Computed example of a mutant assay.
Amino acid sequence: MDNGGATFGGVSFASLGLLLTRANIPLLPETIQTEEELEGLDGTVDVETRYGPRLIELEVSLITEDEASYQIALQQMAKVFNARAGVRPLILDRMTGKRWMCKYNGRIPIDKIASLGEFTLPFKAFFPFSESVTDSMTQLEYGLGYSYGMGLRYETPPAFSVTTSPTLRTLYHAGTHETYPVIRLVGAGSNITVSNTTTGETLTLNLNMVAGDVLEINCAPLEQTIQKNGSSALSGVNGTFPRLVEGDNNISISGAGLNMTVSFIFRHTYLY
Rank of each mutant, 00 (worst) to 15 (best):
E216Y: 01
P181F: 08
F160N: 05
P242R: 01
N3E: 13
V11W: 07
N229T: 01
E201R: 08
T198E: 00
E201G: 03
R54P: 10
Q76G: 00
I183Y: 03
R99I: 07
T170Q: 14
A6Y: 11
A211E: 15
F264S: 10
G189L: 10
G145V: 02
E35H: 08
G239V: 04
I63Q: 11
G175D: 01
G5Y: 11
V60H: 00
N24G: 04
T240K: 05
T225K: 06
R184C: 01
G151Q: 00
F123V: 11
A114W: 03
V262P: 03
M260S: 13
G189Q: 10
G149E: 09
T31S: 12
S130R: 09
P242I: 01
I56V: 15
G5H: 06
S61I: 00
A211D: 15
M260R: 12
F119E: 08
A14H: 05
F160V: 10
L185Q: 08
W100S: 03
I32V: 15
Q76V: 08
G40F: 08
S231C: 05
D135W: 06
V133E: 08
T164V: 12
Y172D: 07
F241P: 01
M101E: 12
G189I: 06
E216N: 14
D213T: 06
F129E: 09
E48L: 15
Y148M: 12
S147R: 15
F13P: 07
S235G: 07
L28P: 02
Q75Y: 14
C102A: 14
V87H: 04
S69K: 11
F241Q: 03
R153G: 02
N105T: 15
I253N: 10
L27S: 13
V262L: 09
V214P: 04
V45E: 03
P26G: 00
L222E: 12
L116E: 13
A125S: 10
Y272D: 15
R153I: 03
T49Q: 14
E59V: 12
M1N: 14
Q33V: 14
V210S: 14
K228D: 02
R22L: 13
L271T: 14
E131G: 00
L234D: 11
S136M: 06
P122A: 04
T7Q: 05
E39D: 10
G187F: 00
A6R: 02
S136Q: 04
E48F: 11
A233K: 04
E35P: 07
L19V: 14
A188E: 14
P29Q: 00
C219R: 09
C102I: 08
G17K: 07
N218R: 09
K79C: 07
R22H: 13
Q75L: 13
S12T: 14
L41E: 12
I183P: 10
R243A: 11
G106C: 08
N249S: 00
D2N: 15
L205Q: 04
L55E: 15
I25A: 05
I113L: 00
G117C: 04
L18I: 04
G40Y: 07
I32P: 09
G230N: 13
L215Y: 03
